[in-house]
Design a protein around this nucleic acid. Structure first.
Length: 843
RNA sequence: GGCCCCGUGGUGGAAUUGGUAGACGCGCGGGACUCAAAAUCCCGUGUCCGCAAGGGCAUGUCGGUUCGAGUCCGACCGGGGCCACCA
């Protein structure tokens, strides 16, 4: 029987062993003269088994790693485990085991799966974030941040289950606001919590988008900019009539200051509290707080606004007019100053509130009057000259009253000395005026909030702080790190944090005075672990510091980072912040951690994301078992561009298998055929052109943008040409087949190393030198020139490349088909694009 | 409500960035091999008219710019994502 398929199991086992033996994927020391390339995929949470999303992520990452290695670069391609987190603790509660045991088991399983996929990792650098050798440096960083004022403590609300007496993570609270374990209604409770001052870096995080533009997806940058939420405006100080306080508000529209007819405070605002001393007001205030809480929980946006008058007035600094002070649920304490000046004529929210409670509305911005020539016929003039489009006039209802706020720019009216100014200019002028009168100043605010990192959980990095009876809040001494997680704890899921029940952990000596001290029982958010792991990989065994800058810096920033879009804001902002903080500590010299980012698309089946609850999961192990890792990789890379959704298809997997077998048979033919000579010169030339075209195309598709699907298509074209080649086994065909093997090596590395050996080559395809396209074969000796008449294809003519415009025009006009089509028409302009087309314009 | 993506054959997707629309794969049809099937190899495959040569129509819709538009501009329709009472 003729064997027409290969045996992936044997091949893959053989080469995986060989790679380990030869240390094929070990990164060399940065002092190595070769250029360095650091390729990283977001490390996995050890949840149990790899799913298809993992397979896609790590296969995608393996392409640049293997390609750059073949290009002769010193490649760092590490892997590790994001090992702390809630699921381990939940599993521990459920199975009455320890989170570490569950985690380590999962790491073992998933590590084997990654090895079975043949991802080219430097396994010597592997670590898990739950290793004390790793998390001690989280603690070290925390202390450094604390010393620099980047870590601080303040009260913040947490989800609290009154029946379990425990803090709940957001994902442990149902959509209805109840506890996942006991269904009690979850309350908000104020606790002392640790924060990182990421807001100190808000401006830099935004500004440095300039360094990332083009190398990061626009979508991710847009999401981050949105998240940081910068607004330009002014702070305005209002005196409170008959009281000592000054009310500070933030506005993006200082130009509307004359239209401020009332003030609105957030229910949590200190002045709102101070002005609500009667039992009636206290009750109403509490109701507003509840309204806000409910809306936040249900993720509702704008809606019905309510509030009440506080029986007090604030004095508008521009005209000394008193404005009534209200409190309302539509004002948020956490943004700006928690208080606003309300301009109902020019802000829709203020408008709705004023309407509801009968507060006066004063117009201070007039729409620019559209000129009669605009808005008809040719649109053009206005926008081309950089003028804003004509604004729609405010919508007026009966008796000239407004039906909606006019929020666009315009001309200032009813604004004292500023009347007549365009609003853009008025913004600046009023900002300056406020400053000169000590009544405010131009200012900038951000939506970005400080990073709340306290978790009332066990399975995380202990926060290395102590409270001493005499010295107060003290950081642990560096020599005492790591502050180890205690093992004498129980996991019940109820009661206080497990750490607070371990006496051996809780009671300690003060590092300052040696007196009695109590340890912090909160652990760190796991996003801390993933904020700097990429730097640890560059020097993973260092024991005196998070990493030795001299060894790690040359590898940074990561050249190519690959992972899911779901991390666009959280992880990718936190690690950018952390990197800048590390730079300011003198540990790294680059401004950004990740030079280039690829956000991969989801893997779907039957139109929706694969998930256990939907029951539409395809198990990676089953695919590897049936077809081998090379086929799985091949399918995943070919079926869709990396950034797009990938629809799983069994036929598609089979197609990938067929193609790899086709390449395998090609090698059988080329090595076993006994050629009687060489193919005709024309056939050889055709093959050479295809071969070098494919090299060129694949090389361009691998870098800088990773477009593997079209790269694979190019190799398929070369294979198709080889199958039609008349003298299989002659030197030209052998050479072309070797090219196929090399070009596919990053995609299907096991089979290609095997075929490389079959063809009697030295070493491994994985270690071979990436082929270079010979420019001589990249140009054809005949090019097809398309002849169009009025843009419609009418003929094709064959020409030598490089023909002049005149010659092309003459030849095109002389073509019989063109002649026929031109009969009776007069030729106008003729457009000639050399080596491409001639377009004849006729009337 | 704000911001950002995406609409191309039966299907997954190509298109050198304004220059031959549909590469490559899947599926389907035909042929070769086979007692037969599978596998494999070869050919075909947007759609309509036509025996053919050839021609018309085609990238969500409608306009615009251009010698030329899947690509650029405007409006609309449809799908998706992120943020969301952010002053």
């Amino acid at each position: 029987m003729v064997k027409d398929v290969y045996d992936p199991k044997a091949v893959e086992k053989k080469w995986q062993a060989e790679w380990v033996k030869r240390k094929t994927f070990a990164a060399a020391d940065p002092s190595d003269p070769r250029p360095r390339y650091y390729c990283l995929e977001m490390f996995p949470y050890p949840s149990g088994n790899l799913h298809m999303g993992h397979v896609r992520n790590y296969t995608l990452g393996d392409i640049p790693a293997r390609y750059h290695r073949m290009k002769g670069e010193n490649v760092l391609h590490p892997i590790g485990w994001d090992a702390f987190g809630l699921p381990a603790e939940n599993a521990a509660i459920k199975n009455k085991t320890h989170p570490e045991k569950w985690t380590r088991q999962n790491i073992a399983v998933m590590g084997q799966q990654l090895k079975a996929l043949g991802i080219s990792y430097d396994w010597d650098r592997e670590f898990a974030t739950c290793d004390p050798d790793y998390y001690r440096w989280n603690q070290w960083f925390f202390i450094k941040f604390f010393e620099k004022g980047l870590a601080y403590k303040k009260k913040a609300a947490v989800n609290w289950c009154p029946s379990c007496k425990t803090v709940l993570a957001n994902e442990q609270v149902s959509a209805e606001g109840t506890c996942w374990r006991c269904d009690s209604v979850v309350e908000q409770k104020e606790l002392e919590q640790w924060f990182f001052k990421i807001t100190a870096y808000a401006e830099q995080l935004l500004e440095d988008h300039d360094l990332l533009r083009g190398a990061w997806p626009d979508e991710v940058l847009a999401m981050q900019a949105n998240w940081i939420g910068k607004s330009d405006g002014a702070e305005v100080l209002f005196k409170v009539q008959g009281r000592p306080e000054t009310l500070t508000v933030f506005t993006t529209r200082p130009d509307t200051l004359f239209g401020a007819t009332f003030m609105a405070l957030a229910p949590q605002h200190p002045l709102a509290q101070a002005l609500s001393q009667t039992p009636d007001k206290k009750k109403k205030l509490a109701e507003l707080v509840d309204l806000q809480g409910a809306r936040k929980r249900n993720r509702q946006g704008a809606g019905e606004k309510s509030g009440f008058f506080l029986d007090a007035y604030a004095i508008n600094p521009v005209n000394q007019k008193p404005a009534p002070i209200w409190v309302s649920d539509y004002v948020l304490m956490e943004y700006g100053t928690g208080a606003i000046m309300a301009v109902p004529a020019h802000d829709q929210r203020d408008f709705e509130f004023a309407r509801k409670y009968g507060i006066p509305i004063i117009e201070v911005i007039q729409p620019l009057i559209p000129s009669p020539s605009m808005g008809e016929g040719k649109d053009g003039g206005a926008t081309q000259q950089g003028l804003p489009p004509p604004p729609s006039s405010p919508t007026k209802g009966e008796e000239g009253s407004l039906t909606a706020a006019y929020e666009a720019e315009g001309k200032m009216i009813n604004s004292g000395e500023f009347t007549g100014l365009p609003s853009a200019e008025g913004k600046k002028k009023i900002g300056q005026w406020l400053k000169s009168k000590d009544a405010g100043q131009p200012t900038v605010t951000y939506k970005l909030r400080d990073w709340l990192l306290s978790r009332q959980r066990y399975w995380g990095t202990p926060i290395p702080m102590l409270t001493c009876e005499t010295c107060g809040l003290v950081p642990a001494a560096e020599k005492d790190l790591p502050v180890l997680l205690p093992t004498d704890v129980e996991f019940t899921g109820t009661g206080e944090s497990p750490l607070s029940k371990s006496a051996s952990f809780l009671n300690a000596k003060c590092p300052k005075c040696g007196g009695k001290a109590r340890r912090e029982t909160d652990t760190m958010d796991t996003f801390v672990d993933s904020s700097w792991y990429y730097a640890r990989y560059a020097d993973p065994k260092e024991s005196k510091a998070p990493f030795d800058s001299a060894r790690a810096n040359p590898w940074l920033p990561v050249n190519q980072y690959i992972g899911g879009i779901e991390h666009a804001t959280m992880h990718l902002i936190y690690s950018r912040f952390w990197h800048k903080a590390m730079r300011d500590l003198g540990l790294v010299s680059s401004p950004e951690p990740f030079q280039r980012l690829l956000a991969q698309g989801m893997v779907t089946l039957d139109g929706s994301a694969m998930s256990k609850s939907r029951g539409n999961v395809v198990d990676p192990d089953a695919i590897i078992e049936k077809y081998g890792a090379d086929t799985a990789r091949m399918f995943i890379l070919f079926a869709a561009p990396p950034t797009q959704q990938l629809a799983w298809s069994d036929e598609g997997v089979n197609g990938a298998w067929r193609f790899l077998s086709r390449v395998w048979r090609l090698v059988e033919h080329v090595t076993k055929a006994l050629p009687k000579g060489e193919a005709p010169l024309e056939a050889q030339k055709k093959l050479l052109r295809k071969q070098h075209w494919a090299i060129d195309k694949v090389t361009r598709d691998f870098e800088p943008e990773i477009q593997i699907n079209t790269a694979i298509a190019a190799v398929m074209e070369l294979v198709n040409v080889l199958y039609l080649y008349p003298m299989m086994g002659d030197p030209a065909s052998k050479q072309a087949v070797l090219t196929v093997v090399q070009l596919l090596s990053p995609v299907a590395p096991h089979l290609m190393d095997d075929l490389w050996e079959t063809m009697g080559q030295e070493g491994m395809a994985s270690e071979s030198k990436w082929p270079a396209a010979d420019p001589q074969w990249l140009t054809a000796d005949q090019v097809e020139i398309v002849v169009q008449i009025n843009g419609k294809l009418r003929a094709r003519i064959q020409m030598a490349p490089g023909a002049s415009k005149d010659v092309l025009e003459k030849e095109a006009l002389a073509d019989p088909k063109v002649q026929a089509a031109l009969a009776g028409k007069s030729v106008g302009k003729v457009i000639v694009v050399p080596d491409k087309l001639v377009n004849i314009v006729v009337k």
